[in-house]
């Protein structure tokens, strides 16, 4: 474990806490894409298949349980909770999951490290995580004004994988033979998707104005 990866994990956790705070305290999911939340639940479900068979560390297991638990409960809140579901912007959150799930699965079948069920699903989860934010970014562009909590949620979510990129560079130079081409490519694509969001996020923060993504 290095400081970059720890910061990445905590930033990721922070994004989930911000989202849960928004949904749980003000009982609203306005501006949040249910499609993206469902894709994240699928990412964790296919990424952590080995949670009960492979023990890395207490930290690793606890964080996996947190990510699994929070992602599924957020989907539950947005689908089932009597008040939260009313604030779900169904008409604008229309991005089709299978446009992302299918290509990622096909790519995982072709481009993987080992052709086993677990490895293909793990690779699928990497590719899917890279693009899972797209429905959320589309929704942000369609939403008139983006509230602070939603903006901060997306910011932390984008920043976490950026810290992972630094972690991979660090591990490449400190651990010989540390190579994760597939993980690195997916991580670069994932972070690149946030570049324009980061630009508008910092601009709104600098000019102290409402975050607005051009349509």
């Amino acid at each position: 474990m290095n400081i970059f990866r720890l910061t990445g994990d905590l930033t990721h956790l922070m994004s989930i806490i911000v989202l849960l705070l928004k949904i749980h305290t003000i009982k609203s999911c306005a501006g949040i894409s249910l499609k993206t939340q469902e894709l994240y639940a699928l990412v964790f479900a296919t990424r952590y298949l080995d949670i009960f068979t492979t023990y890395i560390s207490l930290y690793n297991t606890v964080m996996k349980l947190i990510f699994l638990g929070t992602s599924f409960s957020i989907v539950w809140y947005m689908r089932r909770h009597k008040t939260v579901r009313l604030s779900y912007d169904k008409n604008n959150d229309t991005f089709r999951h299978y446009f992302l799930v299918l290509p990622c699965f096909l790519l995982a079948l072709v481009l993987n490290n080992r052709f086993t069920v677990r490895e293909v699903l793990w690779t699928f989860s990497l590719y899917l995580e890279a693009v899972a934010i797209i429905p959320q970014l589309v929704l942000l562009q369609r939403s008139k004004n983006v509230d602070n909590l939603t903006g901060n949620y997306v910011f932390f979510l984008g920043a976490y994988r950026g810290f992972y990129l630094i972690n991979w560079i660090y591990r490449y130079f400190t651990e010989n033979h540390y190579r994760r081409w597939i993980t690195w490519m997916a991580g670069i694509v994932q972070t690149a998707l946030y570049v324009d969001f980061f630009y508008y996020y910092f601009k709104s923060w600098k000019n102290n104005e409402k975050l607005k993504l051009p349509a």
Partner: peptide, 10 residues
């Protein structure tokens, strides 16, 4: 080679 067998990251 990408020995991604040990998956120690989240």
């Amino acid at each position: 080679e990408d020995a991604s067998s040990e998956k120690d990251e989240l």
